[in-house]
């Protein structure tokens, strides 16, 4: 579903402002004040919780198939996770994952099936 123009612009401007103030918070406004320990602990878990939570439904129920489970795309996602984890590199994992994805999706054409 293509979002409306107005929604896209509100998102761009709103996200730009919010992101700036998150980045500016301590170096610009709060100075050298310390963050409470519980907050520091929670923040360390942000990347490994929000991103997986966001895409888990998109892996099991992808949009292109109208929400039907699709083994090729799910396999590509699992392979990407394993590769990025073993290689310890987002960039290498991403490039290998992309190759897996394109290969899996187009395998029937590549082999002329």
């Amino acid at each position: 579903m293509v979002p409306s123009n107005l929604e896209v612009w509100i998102t761009i401007v709103g996200l730009a402002v919010a992101t700036f103030f998150i980045r500016f918070s301590f170096i610009g406004i709060l100075g050298g004040r310390r963050m409470p320990d519980w907050l520091l602990t929670a923040l360390r878990y942000v990347p490994v919780t929000i991103l997986p939570a966001l895409i888990a439904p998109a892996i099991l129920w992808p949009e292109v198939t109208g929400g039907q489970f699709e083994p090729l795309r799910a396999t590509a996602a699992v392979l990407t996770f394993a590769l990025a984890w073993v290689l310890k590199s987002p960039m290498l994992g991403f490039l290998c994952g992309l190759v897996c994805l394109v290969f899996l999706i187009n395998a029937n054409q590549i082999f002329g099936l």
Binding site: V48, V64, F81, A84, L87, G93, L101
Partner: peptide, 15 residues
């Protein structure tokens, strides 16, 4: 269509 998902996975997996 699925490249964004692959990108997300590779972003958090090493962490």
């Amino acid at each position: 269509d699925f490249a964004g998902v692959v990108m997300f996975v590779s972003l958090f997996a090493p962490a």
